[in-house]
Design a protein around this nucleic acid. Structure first.
Length: 481
RNA sequence: GGCGGUAUCGUCUAGUGGUUAGGACAGAUGGUUCUCAGCCAUCAAGCCGGGGUUCGAUCCCCCGUACCGCUACCA
């Protein structure tokens, strides 16, 4: 295999959204290309008229863009390349590896059934291989539309997989698979060979569910006398029940993780460690670090279960790496979408938003947590947590809230220290623990029993808001009783 | 069924012919604290089974088992 410039590709078929398996294959290709100053290109395998849907194309592109797996060059659409395939098919037909087959689908189906019944694997009988030129011409003249099959050679096919090492398949395990349909269009393996060759793909890194295809493709490369790319097959990503991830089983696609508040860098980082390892005791990496580190020698060959919890932990880590400003940028649209505030309001109070995320950041496992954990900063329309309310909003609590609100109102400066001092004083005078005051106050101003340190929380909320909310809580307690 | 691949804590993984088999997530416990989270510390948890090869196998070989994949005029 001669040295060629590195050029890799991801070739999704638009039969659904982008799932994590395809995303990871894309990532490995992307990392390999970037690491080696090569090209990473995108090809859409959209030739399955029955299952391909144009409406899946954009979401796939969006997901790739979200992950910033940006591809080089123009997107290649298989559906637009039928002329190219026809050329190669022409060429293939001239080799002694090609032959026409007139067997009907019904006949083949019957053979298949029989093979099953006999517990044999289905292999085409080669019935049409022995047809004479005259017989073929006669059928053609009669208007029969044959398919084109490849005559699998004797012997075995071997190649060196960059993940699994040397792999061999006895050719007799392969059947004379169909290369072109009766309507003249080529099938998957033929199109892939033509495309990978034509596009100058140097390395084919894909899921190991393609290993059988690889042998078929190699036979086609050989028949067409084309130079082979290097192949590498990465393990599958499995669900917690060890089944291959699939949309049908309810597995999330990449877009759903995005909507849940997963950061693209977290997804990238997590995915990179499924089936690959940098072999050091560190797991959190930036995109650039992954590019620098990525090496096919770190690829392993056993399937990996996708663990949402660990993804979340990675997400948390990457959230912590961001600045308050960056987090504010990410949080703003989520808060607006949730209806707790408006875009305009936030734009005029950016510093406030920045402080809020600064306060909440180490509680954010997914960005969307900002809404549930911090909605009260923007919206007074919260309800009190029922359990906490039962515990804190009693007569004594109301009295404390009312007293504290008065003292807060009288403060000339609403700083952490002043607030703390006011609260401590009250606790001392009443000879009670500070917690007795802190908890009802937190509930009054946030509706929640959990959250950031109270003094910080109060300062960010602001004197006016705090006092208002406390008074309102007092009223609420009185009304209720 | 046939063919192929894989097998280290629950999960993702590192690792070596001789190691206290390492890390991360999750779990447990303790500390910090006004709560939650975080942070810190500690703990628990693994070499699929059986044969070989060898002075010695988690590691190499074989068999078994389990799991995964492929087995279309789909991609």
């Amino acid at each position: 295999m001669s040295e060629r410039p590195v050029k890799v590709r991801i070739a999704p078929s638009p039969t659904g959204y982008l799932h994590v398996g395809t995303a990871r294959a894309a990532l490995f290709n992307y990392l390999y290309a970037r690491h080696n100053d090569g090209k990473f290109v995108l090809r859409l395998e959209d030739t399955d008229v029955a299952r391909s849907k144009p409406e899946f194309i954009q979401p796939i592109l969006d997901a790739l863009k979200w992950l910033e797996l940006d591809w080089d060059e123009e997107i290649v659409f298989q559906s637009k390349r039928s002329e190219l395939y026809a050329e190669y098919l022409e060429r293939f037909l001239k080799t002694d590896r090609a032959y026409h087959c007139f067997c009907s689908r019904e006949e083949l189906e019957a053979e298949r059934k029989q093979a099953r019944a006999d517990k044999r694997s289905m292999k085409y009988s080669r019935k049409c291989l022995s047809l004479s030129k005259e017989e073929i011409q006669a059928k053609l003249d009669a208007g029969e539309k044959p398919v084109v099959r490849v005559k699998i050679p004797e012997g075995a096919t071997t190649y060196e997989d960059i993940v699994s090492g040397e792999l061999t398949r006895q050719n007799e395990e392969l059947e004379d698979f169909i290369v072109a349909r009766s309507d003249g269009s080529v099938t998957y393996n033929f199109a892939v060979v033509v495309d990978d060759y034509d596009m100058g793909i140097s390395h084919v890194i894909r899921g190991n569910d393609h290993i059988t295809n690889t042998f078929k493709q190699i036979i086609l490369y050989n028949a067409l006398e084309l130079e082979l790319p290097v192949f590498g097959h990465v393990p599958m990503i499995l669900r917690p029940d060890k089944k291959k991830v699939s949309k049908r089983l309810g597995d999330k696609d990449v877009g759903e993780y995005q909507n849940e508040g997963i950061l693209p860098e977290a997804m990238i980082n997590y995915l990179s460690l499924l089936g690959w390892s940098p072999k050091v005791d560190n797991e959190i990496y930036s995109r650039q670090e992954l590019i620098d580190l990525f090496d096919t020698s770190g690829l392993n060959n056993s399937n990996a279960v996708f663990d949402d919890e660990k993804l979340l932990a990675f997400n948390f880590s990457h959230i912590q790496k961001k600045s308050d400003h960056e987090l504010a940028v990410l949080a703003a649209p989520l808060l607006v979408d949730a209806g707790v505030t408006t875009k305009y309001w936030l734009e005029t109070r950016w510093e406030f938003l920045r402080q809020v995320v600064g306060l909440l950041r180490e509680r954010l496992h997914r960005m969307s947590d900002i809404v549930t954990l911090g909605g009260y900063f923007f919206d007074f329309d919260y309800t009190y947590d029922p359990k906490a309310e039962a515990k804190q909003f009693h007569a004594e609590g109301a009295q404390l809230l009312s007293d504290l609100a008065e003292r807060f109102e009288a403060l000339d400066q609403f700083t952490h220290d002043k607030v703390e001092a006011a609260l401590s004083e009250l606790a001392e005078e009443r000879d009670i623990k500070k917690g007795k005051i802190i908890h009802p106050t937190r509930l009054a101003v946030s509706g929640m029993s959990i959250g950031p340190g109270l003094y910080d929380l109060l300062v960010v909320l602001g004197q006016r808001t705090v006092v208002d909310r406390m008074k309102k809580a007092v009223e609420y307690i009185h009304q209720r009783s």
